[in-house]
Structure formats: C-alpha cells, structure tokens
Computed example of a mutant assay.
Amino acid sequence: MRCAYFDAGVCRSCTWMGRPHGEQVADKERHCADLLGERADLRWLPPVTGRESRYRNKAKMVVGGSAEHPRLGILDAGGRGIDLQGCGLYPGTLAASFPLLAAFVTRANLTPYDVPTRTGELKNLLVTQSPDGELMVRFVLRSQEPVARIRKHLPWLLDAVPQLRVVSVNLLPDHRAVLEGDREIPLTETQTLRMRVNGIDLHLRPQSFFQTNTEVAAALYRHATSWVEELAPASVWDLYCGVGGFALHVAAPGREVVGIETSVEAIASATQSASARGLSGVRFAAGDATQFALAAESAPELVIVNPPRRGIGDELSRWLEDSDVRHVVYSSCNAASLARDLAVMPSLRPRRAQVLDMFPQTPHYEVLTLLERV
C-alpha cells in the first residue's frame, strides 16, 4: 500500500507504510514468538490476514482549521489540524461521509477547538461504520453551547448521509490528550449501531469498544469459538467482554456464560444482544474483572480474557494460576504484557497461538492463545 500523506511526511502514523504486507505479517509472527519464548508444546497456527487498506471501521478525526474551512485528521507538532480526509485506511461509506461532515461543521457553525490557545468547541469527530455500511457519528465538544445548533441542522445531515443511524454529542470540557469525555448526549432515537459479525448482531453504543478491523475481528471470534467448542466446557467466563463478542459467539444450550466489563454502556449493549437472541444461559454484569474473579465462590471450566494493552496483571494471573480453571483463551493486543502474564501462571501452558493482523501498516497485531492446565 502507498500513501501520499506518508510519502509527503504529512502523516507518519502508519510507521510500516510501504513495506510489503507479507513481510509485515512475518515480522509480527517473529516478534510474538520471540516474546513468548521457545516452547516445545506450543503449536503456531497460520496467521490471519485481511485487507491491507480500507480496513478500519472507526475514524478518530481531530477537527482543526475554522468553521468555514474545517480540517479533519490529526494534529501537527504545533497542535494545529492536518486534513486527512483522503486516508486510505477507511472503507468507502465511512470515507464518503468526511466531506459531508465537514460541510455540516460549516453549516452548524461549529468552531474547531484550537489546542495552543484552548479556544473553540469542536474537538473530535468519531465515526464508526458497521459491516452493513451504517454509520455512527459522535461530536466531541468542549461544552453544550453548540448542541442546539447541531440539533437544528441535524435533519440536513441525516438527509445528506442516508447511512447515518446514530448521532450523539460527547462532552470533553477538560484540556486533555484524550478522545472523549464521560458524558454522552444522544441526538437520534436510535442509540445503538448494529454490528453484524458471523451472523450475530452485536449492538454498539457510543461509548462501547469494538475491534478496529471487522474482517479480522470476525476471524478472531470464529477461531476462538472453534477452540471452545472443541473443549465443550459447561461454564465460561468472558472477562473484559466489551460488547460481548466472545460470550455471544460461544453461547450454547446447556452452557453457562458470564461476561464482565467495566463499561456500563458496553454491558447494556451486550445484554441487548443476548436478549435479542433469546439466550437464557448468558448474563452480563458491569464490574472489574479481577475483583469479580476474587469474589467468586467457584471458578468456571474455561475463561476467556481480552484485556487492554496492559494485560490482565499479576493479581488476576495469580488467581488463574491458583484456581481449578482448566483452559484459558487469551486474546491479546500486546504480546509483551501477554508474556508477563504467562510468567505468573506457569501451570497454564500455551498450547496454540495465532497472530491476527488486526492493524496492517503498523507493528501492532492481535494474538490468540489457548492455555491448558498441566
């Protein structure tokens, strides 16, 4: 893949841009194998790859420039906006929405937030595309002052972007290097974006996490599900469950599945999905994964973990090591933290591992590992 922004030195976010895709994947496999170390009983499965461009289902666009001439993209070293509307990572429907969203910024007179002077209102535009091509748009604002104008002109946007289903405002009053704040104001009657993955409807709310690469995420869920089905556990915990992707995929008659996630919004999404499918053996609860495990009266036969980059940490790793959990399916976006966690639970040996190229053009990847108690 070639990128004019990268070649011009305008954007270097994709640090591996221009490298052959096969070479990228091979380097990721070597990196992961080096971190996990030499293990005679570990079988490496072929890597999972997808498209090397147009793969991102979510755009996190900083808004710069002016209301009359907005720039959607990233900030330069001086904190000013660089327009990246032509970025090749975004699929068609999502990319086609950028000029219309820029026109809406002008129509609603939304002054972009200026980082150096800390003035203005509109900080970021967060746009998510579902597998069916439907969109969710979130306006990240410093205050509620522009909300009335957004509401006034919203019919124009909904007409201009017919794929648009969910619109909300997120409030981020603080001057912080984060994408969004805690408070969300829904602007449309529909408040969830349906993410159809492997024939399962996952309902995504504005503040819920979903994997960046839908195609590779679908493969991740399929492969993990095949491992679980092979082991046929009667009870499963899905810790750090997000919107319930793993839990809803492994649900089966006679199997008790529990999903735990700190995000209340994500749990609401997961519960909605389970209810829509009529799954009586699946329940979700908001809470800390480690504290849930420590307080439990008994352990399940199998645990799925899909933690953030920091990993599951020493406390949960020690609990798993001391428990009678037979198998762990560990999905990691950071093999370094995975290796640290594995060192704390030597009784749970990696038997299978598979690299999934979730983030082409970058050194990042997902690795799925099956651990078995010895």
Rank of each mutant, 00 (worst) to 15 (best):
P346I: 00
L316R: 00
E315K: 13
R352V: 04
L316W: 05
D288H: 13
R326T: 04
S331T: 09
W319A: 02
V305Y: 06
N306G: 13
Q354H: 06
A293L: 05
A295D: 14
R326D: 12
T290G: 11
P307D: 15
Y330P: 00
V355N: 06
A339S: 03
Q354T: 08
E297I: 13
D322K: 15
A335I: 08
T362Q: 09
A295T: 10
S332W: 01
R326H: 07
D357A: 06
R318F: 03
V355G: 13
A353N: 08
E301S: 05
F292H: 10
S347Q: 06
W319Q: 02
V329N: 02
A339C: 05
A336Q: 14
P308I: 15
L316G: 03
N334C: 14
C333P: 12
P346N: 01
L356A: 05
V344F: 01
F284S: 05
A299T: 12
H327W: 12
Q354Y: 07
Q291V: 04
D357V: 09
R352L: 11
A293K: 01
S317T: 04
G287A: 09
S323D: 14
L342V: 07
Q354W: 08
M345P: 09
R326Y: 02
A353R: 12
T290Y: 05
E321M: 06
S347W: 00
I304R: 08
A335M: 10
N334A: 14
A285H: 05
I304G: 06
D322N: 15
Q291S: 10
D324G: 08
S317G: 09
T290E: 15
S317P: 02
L294P: 00
T362P: 14
M345H: 03
I304Y: 10
S337D: 14
D288T: 13
A299D: 10
V329Y: 05
V305T: 02
E301A: 10
L316P: 01
F284L: 02
G311N: 10
S298Q: 13
Q361S: 14
R352E: 04
R309W: 14
Q291A: 13
V328A: 05
A335Y: 13
N334T: 11
N306A: 14
A286G: 11
I312Q: 07
V305C: 08
E315T: 15
A299G: 01
E301Q: 13
Y330N: 00
L342Y: 05
G311W: 07
G313R: 10
R309V: 12
L316H: 01
C333N: 05
N334Y: 12
H327L: 03
H327P: 12
A343G: 05
V305W: 07
W319N: 01
R340I: 01
L338W: 04
A343D: 11
L294G: 08
T362F: 04
R318V: 09
R351F: 01
V328T: 02
P360F: 13
T290C: 15
V344D: 07
S317C: 03
R351L: 02
A285E: 09
F284R: 02
S323C: 12
E297L: 14
V329P: 01
L338Q: 03
